[in-house]
Amino acid sequence: MHRGEGERVWAIALALGAAAGCFGGPDPRPLARDEVAPRAPGAAWAYPEELHRPYAVLGTNAGVDDANGKPARIPCRVCHDRLEPKDENRYALRIGGFHAGVAIEHGDLTCRSCHEPPRFEGFRLQDGRPVAYADVMRLCAQCHGLQARDWQRGLHGGMTGHWDRDSGPRTRNHCIDCHHAHRPAIPRMVPAPLPLPRFQDEPGQAARTGDLDG
């Protein structure tokens, strides 16, 4: 008798507690909701989006540092204003001489897929039209349309600065900041050191770290 009553009371209390748990108490800081869009679609930002560009003109690294400690660049035109490119290199993947070390590992592309003499200031699109070095992304986009569209939407490629360009500017990478045009796969690298699950100076730490398995 007594026990039965007690258990009922207990069940009710628990159910009440559970219900309270589900619906929660008053939330002191309610989550922001999307009743009003924070900014009008397509509205201009207060700060610009800059495109990071590593070099001003097309060229090749000299292999030495300049006075500022940066890799010295030799613009293409230094030589190719006077020298015609050799025709036997038209479909080469590796060439010698001054360009020794250039190796193209980029699908089926060869030198002339992008470089077209005599216009060494920029590149050549597939339809023959020229494209400036600054607009190299148009060149890449010919094949990599998906990536180019993702980039345009801000879904592909690194950036630094502000997500909110009403607060500050943002600098974005373009294709060849991350992908070398000749070997676009990102090179294999040693990952940053692993965090330890516990303190190094703990006795037995070595054993514990060794225990880790995924």
Binding site: R33, D166, I186
Partner: peptide, 23 residues
């Protein structure tokens, strides 16, 4: 208004950050 540190550090540009309420 700045981007998170992990996003800026990503060399593959794999990370995307922003305001979910802004279409």
């Amino acid at each position: 208004g700045r981007l998170p540190a992990c996003l800026e550090a990503c060399p593959a540009g794999a990370r995307v950050f922003g305001n979910l309420l802004d279409p």
